[in-house]
């Protein structure tokens, strides 16, 4: 599997986007394209050409799962691996998301110093 280089991150919370960007770019040395909603992600994903989707699960409007369904419709992105982030910590939610194809589910609050490692480890398991 090729090296993980670019992540499409979708989260409606601006502060979390800033933290995640800094974590992935500065700590993890990854390229990040960020969107504040599922709709924006679907519109920009094709141009962004990410290696990995990092999606917040709970978002107003389209939630993480709906966003993923939209992204999967875009030719060429059908098989991009997805990692969800969620502030809902119930194990059944995590299990359901993994059954639906998520390679990892990261609980919020996440540690920005370790986020990148978590992404790379999941990527390496593919």
């Amino acid at each position: 599997m090729a090296e993980l280089r670019k992540v499409l991150h979708v989260d409606d919370d601006e502060d979390i986007r800033v933290i995640a960007k800094m974590s992935l770019e500065v700590v993890g040395d990854l390229a990040v394209h960020q969107c504040s909603s599922g709709m924006q992600a679907i519109n920009e994903a094709d141009a962004a050409k990410p290696d990995l989707f990092l999606l917040d699960y709970m978002m107003p409007g389209m939630n993480g799962e709906e966003t993923l369904r939209g992204l999967r419709q875009i030719p060429g992105l059908e098989n991009v691996p997805v990692i969800f982030m969620t502030a809902r910590v119930q194990p059944d939610v995590s299990e359901a998301l993994k059954r639906d194809g998520a390679i990892e589910v990261i609980a919020k609050p996440f540690d920005p110093m370790e986020l990148c490692d978590q992404l790379r480890q999941a990527w390496a398991r593919l």
């Binding site: 919370d13 502060d15 979390i16 800033v18 933290i19 995640a20 800094m22 974590s23 500065v26 700590v27 502030a87 919020k108 609050p109 996440f110 540690d111 920005p112 110093m113």
Partner: peptide, 14 residues
Amino acid sequence: LRTPLTSIKGALRL
């Protein structure tokens, strides 16, 4: 509560 805590903790760690 977790959502703002994510930002606070993230910012502090960084």
